[in-house]
Design a binder for these strands. Structure first.
Length: 264
DNA sequence: ATGGTAGGCGTCCTA
């Protein structure tokens, strides 16, 4: 089963890209962020027509997350439990169930998460970022106790290591790379998660290139979109990658998809 | 050197 995460920066603007990419990538489950629309405005019909079930936690103008699944899907959470600002739609969680070849049940719990950017730091936005990460960590503890396959995917807005940014010095004081942000991500990972991309790849790779200053052309990127796997999901990890192609298309999102393959 | 670009119920805010 292939699972991907993609911050599309407006589902309305990016629908054609998403449909093209779904056709060529053969992804079973897609975790979307920054859909920037209410539930009613989400193009559910267009996506159902090409074979996906749709779950949306939308918001007007900002944020908004969704999950697409070729397999039956049950929504478990809309909104992060005890989120510091529940008016911001940044979390949706579901259980997807691919058909077992032998009739066995193989449910996988997935979440699509849009972490706060946190700039400027210090300040109230940075405080909100850290508060959100603390509540996410608490919820992740609860989910890990279920000892089931779990994929926490999304735009984490955190650069894990210096090798995950083109110029670490230039990002030293940015909310995405401050020591407290990186420590909060480490606390989460250290609960027992596996970074699906880094587990299988040692090379430098990015998931985001700013629209400004020719960042894409200069390959001035960041790796801030991640798929974190519970031990039971990591046991089944067979492949992962970052699909750079969509970032090079006309009128792209500033993010490109990260994906992983779990054996059935 | 504080620019640059993109998206949205937009004349600013967020990223």
């Amino acid at each position: 089963m292939r699972i991907a995460s993609w911050n599309v920066n407006s589902i309305k603007i990016r629908l054609a890209h998403l449909l093209d990419w779904l056709k060529q990538s053969k992804t079973d489950v897609v975790l979307l962020q920054e859909i920037k629309c209410l539930d009613d405005g989400f193009p559910a019909l267009e996506l159902e027509t090409v074979g996906y079930n749709v779950a949306v936690h939308g918001q007007k103008t900002y944020n908004g997350v969704a999950i697409l699944s070729r397999h039956p899907m049950t929504v478990e959470q809309r909104g992060l439990p005890e989120a510091p600002d529940p008016t911001q739609s940044r979390y949706i969680e579901a259980i997807v169930e691919p058909p077992g070849a032998d009739g066995a049940r193989r449910p996988v719990r997935v979440a699509s998460i849009y972490f706060p950017n946190g700039n400027p730091a210090p300040g109230p936005k940075y405080d909100h970022k850290l508060a959100f990460m603390a509540k996410l960590e608490a919820h992740a503890r609860t989910l890990l106790a279920f000892e089931e396959p779990l994929v926490l995917g999304g735009d984490y807005n955190v650069i894990p290591q210096p090798e995950d940014v083109y110029d670490p010095k230039a990002w030293a004081t940015d909310a995405l790379f401050l020591p407290q942000s990186r420590a909060a991500l480490r606390r989460l990972v250290n609960l027992g998660f596996t970074d699906a991309f880094r587990a299988l790849h040692a090379e430098v790779a990015y998931t985001f290139w700013d629209y400004q200053a020719g960042a894409w052309q200069k390959d001035h990127g960041l790796r801030i979109d991640h798929l974190l796997l519970s031990p039971q999901a990591a046991d089944r990890l067979t492949a992962s990658g970052i699909d750079k192609k969509p970032r090079g298309w006309e009128k792209p999102s500033d993010h490109t998809p990260v994906w992983c393959e779990l054996s059935v």
